[in-house]
Design a protein around this nucleic acid. Sequence first.
DNA 1: GTTAAAAATTGATGTGTGTCAACTCAAATT
DNA 2: AATTTGAGTTGACACACATCAATTTTTAAC
Lengths: 253, 253
Amino acid sequence: MGELKNAFNIGCPNCGLQKICFPTGLMRADITRLDSIVERKAPLHKGDHLYRFGENFDSVFAIKAGVVKVYTLTNQGEEQILGFYLPGDVIGLDALSTKHYQCNAVALDTTSVCAIPFDQLEILSMQIPALNHQLFCLMSKGVNDGRVHSEILSKRNADQRVAHFIWNLSQRFLSRGYLHTEFRFNVLQRDVAMYLGLTPETVSRILARLAKDKVVNWKRKEIKIFDLEGLRDMAGEKAHVQEMEKDLNVKLG
Amino acid sequence: MGELKNAFNIGCPNCGLQKICFPTGLMRADITRLDSIVERKAPLHKGDHLYRFGENFDSVFAIKAGVVKVYTLTNQGEEQILGFYLPGDVIGLDALSTKHYQCNAVALDTTSVCAIPFDQLEILSMQIPALNHQLFCLMSKGVNDGRVHSEILSKRNADQRVAHFIWNLSQRFLSRGYLHTEFRFNVLQRDVAMYLGLTPETVSRILARLAKDKVVNWKRKEIKIFDLEGLRDMAGEKAHVQEMEKDLNVKLG
DNA sequence: GTTAAAAATTGATGTGTGTCAACTCAAATT
DNA sequence: AATTTGAGTTGACACACATCAATTTTTAAC
C-alpha cells in the first residue's frame, strides 16, 4: 500500500509513548500483537473531530501528538468541557457502556492519533491478562480524574481553580518527560474558563495577577512557570494530608 | 459453619438485584461461578465504613440494601461527597489503578453488601467474556456519572441542582423497579448540600419553596414527588436535545 | 420520658464572581 | 499592507449564594 514513512507512522514497538499508553506488564510480543490492530491515522488539523456525540462507538484513541478537547453540549447549547488530552492519553473509553460516544472530541492543534478498534481490543485483552488489567486501570483513572474535577468545581474558588489547572498541566508534562516549567499549550483561555466553571473575564484577571506576582506567565500559546511551589500552594493542593488522616483513623480505631 | 439463613444470605442466582449488578449476557452457569467467589457480609450499621482512603484494595462491593455515601476529605478537612449509592450499585472499582481505595465509603443506614475479591473477579472475568465486558461497562458508567456531576456543578444554579438531584434519584428508584414518586431516603440534607456544592441553608430554602409549590415534599427521611414533570423542567434536564444536534451535524456535513 | 446534641429552618447581611460594555491586540483573510 | 474577525483585557455594576446568627425541630442518649 506504500504507507507513509514519517513520525506519524511509527509502530507501537518503537513508539516513545508506549509506556504511557500501556505501561505495565506487557511483553514485547504482546506489544507487537497490539500494534497489529492499531490504525495509525493521518494527522488531524485544528478543528477536526475524532468523534461526535451519539456516533457509533468503534474505536478508542491514543493521542500521539497535539491536544484534544473533549466536551458535550448542554441543553442551552453551551459547551461543557470535560478535559484536555495530551500525548499518551487514551480517550473514548466512556462510550463503552452505551455503544455510542457520549462526548465530542476535537483537535485543538495539529494532532496525531492511533485508533484502536474496540471489538478487536476486547478480544485481544481476553488473551493478554496484562492488557486487560491495563484497560481496567485506564478506566479507573478516568473515574478518578472526573472526581478531582468535581472537587475543583465544588470546593475551590476561582484563584485555586486556575492555579490548580496550570499546576496539574505542568505535572502532566513532567510525567511525560517534557519540560514542565515552560511549554506550548495551544488552548484558548476561553476554553479553560469553561472547563473550570468560570468566565473568560475572571480567568483573564487571575492570569494578570499571576503575571504581576511573577508566578506564571501565560501569553499567546506559551506558558512559563516561575514559581511552581507558589502555584501549588495557591491551588490548595493536598500534599499528603490524607495520609495523615489515615494514620489518625488507625489511632482512633 | 452454620451460616445465617436470611435476606442477607441469598446467593446471586436467587438475588433480585442480579440483573442490576451484572445484567447482560451472563448465563446461569456464569452466575453460579460468580456466586462462588462472592462474600456475603453481615449487615452494616449506620456509620460503619466499607473501606477508607488509602487502605489496600481487595474487593469491590455490590450494594444489596441501604445507602452508601462515598467521599474524600479535602485538605481543609471538609468532606467532598462524590455520590450516594443504592441497591444494585457496585462501588470500589476506582481503586483499581492504584491498588488503594481512593475514597471513603460509609453506610448511612442499615446496609447489606456483597464483597467480591477483585483478584478472583479478574481471573473469572478472563474466562467469561460477558463478565469482563460488564466490568468495562460498569467503569464506563462511572466515568459518565462523574461527568454528569461535573456538569451540574459547573453549569447549573442552586435550584437546578436540587431539582436535578431529586429527579435523578427518582429515576434511579424507577430503574430498580421501586416506587419512584414516594420513597425513603435516609441521607442528611447537609450531605446532599455538600454533594451539590451548596450550603445546607440554600438547600433548605429551595426545599421549602418546592414544598410550597407542591412539587416535592422532603420531610424527615421521606421524599414525596407530586410533579415529576415540573421537577425535570426545573432541573434543566436535556430531554433529547443532543439527538437533535446530532441530526443537525449530519445536515451541516 | 427527659435531656442533650445535632440537624434543619429562617432572616439579615456580605462578597466573589458573573454580566455588560468598551477597548486593545493578535490572527486570519483578502 | 489593509481589513476583518475573534480573543483577551479592563472597569463598573449586579446578584446568587455564602456567611453569620438566632430559633425550632428532630434524633440520640440516658
